[in-house]
Design a protein around this nucleic acid. Structure first.
Lengths: 149, 149
DNA sequence: CTAATTCCTGCTATTTATCTAGGGATTTCA
DNA sequence: TGAAATCCCTAGATAAATAGCAGGAATTAG
């Protein structure tokens, strides 16, 4: 139940785009440097995020990336599902091809359990937006959270 | 964000123990057969569950395993944390040695994010007990859930 | 004693995660 | 137009984790 670097880097990179959204298009290179992520690796992640419609890209000199929607409209669930696949404790309730194989699903109590867990975890992730993170970052810089009052 | 077989088998095996708790000690072999899990693999899992105090064992002929506490007092979180380690989206908020390495935690907004996610996911897992699963199983057998009314 | 059972240690094949390599395609600016 | 900057694509290399196997030692009921 650990995120891989795909999900973690992805969220950090998207947060980075959100924080610099006023500067127009952001180069992959600058995101990679600020977030200390391998450029080549980040390329793969951005390719998936673009294909999923979460970011737009501008090619050529002075090109770069930007969020496709406002930070309020992008959740951690959106990002993580794109980069890590469906968030689900098991294959059998992930909704893919594997799920079809589980013929006993209708009579299997574990199916109910995992499905319940799946729904709740997705709800948690979908309730957290990039805007929320930006807000927390703002508070941090103001010292609000600094001393864990 | 997928459970490995450790966690899944572990939950199923513990549920199996709960369902047969009236029969005294349950042999590993019978659990493995009913749940279709490799005996040798299940040995490792039971060793960990025992070390963690979730089950008791009786050695020798007629021996076997039984739950150390009542099904109401054992949560999915208990089981999964034993077999898969701390449930946490990242190392840096998992509470282990790795967490110490993250010196910037106090000033890092991602730390807040992951910690928030971690707490909520654990809350979901800790709110689900073996007794809950037994109850769902009972309803299934009565046909209550059978047709997804 | 003997059969059944847990307990312990180590090994290994397979898969997955993470990152690297290298080049190609596209666009902008001078 | 041409060069620089950037996105785009495919393949593979390395390391770690997963999932399971093997063999036997220790324990106990009958």
């Amino acid at each position: 139940m650990r995120l891989s670097t795909k999900g973690r880097y992805g969220v950090r990179a998207m947060f980075d785009l959100a924080m610099h959204s006023q500067e127009g298009t952001i180069t992959l290179k600058s995101v990679a440097q600020r977030e200390n992520i391998s450029e080549k690796y980040l390329e793969h992640l951005f390719a998936n995020l673009k294909k999923a419609g979460l970011i737009h890209s501008v090619r050529g000199a002075q090109g770069g990336y930007r969020l496709a929607r406002s930070p309020e409209e992008i959740t951690l669930g959106d990002i993580i599902r794109v980069l890590e696949g469906p968030v689900s404790p098991t294959e059998c309730v992930a909704g893919g091809i594997e799920a079809e194989k589980c013929e006993r699903a209708q009579h299997c109590v574990m199916h109910l359990v995992w499905n319940n867990i799946r729904e709740q975890i997705n709800q948690v992730l979908d309730n957290y937006t990039l805007a929320d993170i930006c807000e927390e970052q703002r508070k941090l810089q103001n010292g609000g959270y600094m001393f864990y009052i």
